[in-house]
C-alpha cells in the first residue's frame, strides 16, 4: 500500500493551477516533483500538507483520506512534516526548542538530542537560529520536521537558498539521511539535475498536469513528450520524415521504424552525445560555435537547412568555428522520436 495517494487533484486560484494530478508514493520512496515555475508543483505539495483546500480529487496519507471535495483535515492532523525553502526556523526559539516544537513534553529532551545527533548537529541545542550557518539551519529544519515521526516528509525547493558548493553537499547528505531513516518524501524542485539525483521517481509537471512520471533514467532517456525532453535540457529537435526504411533527416537516415504511415513528419530528440562530427569539406553543416565546458567541447553545428544540433567531443577533436563538418547520428542507442508533441514507439 502506498503512503501517499493523490487522485485527480484540482485546484484553482482564479485560473486552474493544478488540473488533474495523480500519483502514488510508496513507503520509503522519494518522489521529485519537477517543473518550471508556475507549473503547480508547489501547490500540489501544499495541497498534500493541507495548507490549501482541494477543489476536487482525493488525497490519502497512510490509508486515511485527508482531503477530498468534502473533507479537509487540517495540517496539524495530517502527519506530514514539511521543510520550507527558507527553512522557517522559529527565530525566537533555540535550536532544541525548534526541534522539540512538535513533541509532547514527556521524553522531549531525549528525542531532541537523538534528532540533533541524527542530522549531525550534536550539542548545538542551546544555539539560537541566527548563530547557525545556512547548512546548519537546513539540518535543524529537517530534524524538526522528522522529530514527530511524520508519515511523509514534504520538501519545498529545499536547496535553492544554498550556494552551489554547499547545495551539492547538502543534496548528497539529505538523500543519505532520508534513505537511512527510511523516510517517505515528496520534494519540489525546478532543477532537473537535483530531481534526477534526489528522486527515486521523478514526476515532470507542466501547466498543472503531470507530463510523465518514472525513474530518473526513464525520464531522461525515454521522455514521453517534447516538453519533458526539452525541460530535462540540452536537447535539439531534428526534423525528419518517416519512410519504410527509417527516418530521413538532415543528418542522414536514422534506422528506426516507428509505427507511422510513410511520409509522416516527425522530430527526433538528440542530445550532444548522440551526434558525431567528422571534418569534411563537402559535409552537411558548419561549426557555428564552440563552447569549452572543462572536460570536453560542445560544438554547435548549423546544417544546410538551418537546423541546429550540438555535439559533445573530447579534447582530441579540435575544430575551429566555420569548419565544414559531416554530422551524423551515433547509432549506439535508439533515439526518441516525436510525432507532434508526444513520443512514438520504435
Amino acid at each position: 500500500m502506498s503512503t501517499v495517494t493523490c487522485r485527480h487533484l484540482q485546484k484553482s486560484f482564479d485560473v486552474p493551477v493544478v488540473a488533474g494530478v495523480s500519483f502514488d508514493v510508496q513507503p520509503g520512496q522519494i518522489l521529485a516533483l519537477l517543473g518550471p515555475s508556475g507549473c503547480g508543483k508547489t501547490t500540489t505539495l501544499r495541497l498534500i500538507a493541507g495548507f490549501e483546500q482541494l477543489d476536487g480529487g482525493l488525497i490519502e496519507i497512510d490509508g486515511q483520506v485527508v482531503a477530498d471535495g468534502r473533507t479537509h483535515i487540517p495540517p496539524e492532523r495530517r502527519r506530514a512534516g514539511i521543510v520550507f525553502q527558507d527553512y522557517a526556523i522559529f527565530p525566537h526559539l533555540s535550536v532544541a526548542e525548534n526541534v522539540g516544537f512538535g513533541l509532547e513534553k514527556r521524553g522531549r529532551a531525549e528525542r531532541v538530542a537523538e534528532m540533533l545527533d541524527f542530522v549531525g548537529l550534536p550539542g548545538l541545542g542551546e544555539r539560537m537560529p541566527h548563530e547557525l550557518s545556512g547548512g546548519q539551519q537546513q539540518r535543524v529544519a529537517l530534524a524538526r520536521a522528522l522529530a514527530p515521526q511524520p508519515v511523509v516528509l514534504l520538501l519545498d525547493e529545499p536547496f535553492s537558498n544554498l550556494d552551489a558548493a554547499l547545495r551539492a553537499e547538502m543534496r548528497r547528505e539529505v538523500r543519505q539521511l532520508l534513505k537511512r531513516g527510511g523516510v517517505t518524501a515528496v520534494f519540489v524542485t525546478h532543477d532537473q539535475e537535483e530531481a534526477l539525483f534526489m528522486g527515486d521517481a521523478v514526476a515532470v509537471m507542466n501547466r498543472g498536469r503531470i507530463e510523465q512520471i518514472g525513474t530518473p533514467e526513464t525520464i531522461f532517456h525515454r521522455p514521453k513528450t517534447r516538453f519533458v525532453a526539452d525541460f530535462l535540457g540540452n536537447t535539439d529537435f531534428v526534423p525528419g520524415v518517416a519512410t519504410p526504411a527509417g527516418i530521413e533527416t538532415p543528418l542522414g537516415l536514422l534506422p528506426q521504424t516507428p509505427d507511422l504511415p510513410p511520409g509522416t513528419a516527425v522530430t527526433i530528440a538528440a542530445r550532444p552525445d548522440d551526434v558525431r562530427l567528422v571534418e569534411d569539406g563537402a559535409g552537411n553543416g558548419r561549426v557555428t560555435n564552440r563552447r569549452f565546458i572543462g572536460i570536453a567541447f560542445i560544438y554547435e553545428v548549423t546544417l544546410a537547412d538551418g537546423t541546429v544540433v550540438h555535439s559533445w567531443q573530447s579534447h582530441q577533436t579540435q575544430l575551429a568555428e566555420g569548419t565544414a563538418v559531416q554530422a551524423t547520428f551515433d547509432d549506439a542507442h535508439s533515439l526518441v522520436v516525436f510525432a507532434g508533441e508526444t513520443a512514438v514507439g520504435g
Binding site: E76, R78, F84
Partner: peptide, 11 residues
C-alpha cells in the same frame, strides 16, 4: 511559512 511549519508539527 513559520506558522505553517508550526501547523505541520501538530499544533
Amino acid at each position: 511559512g513559520l506558522e505553517e511549519a508550526a501547523r505541520s508539527l501538530g499544533k
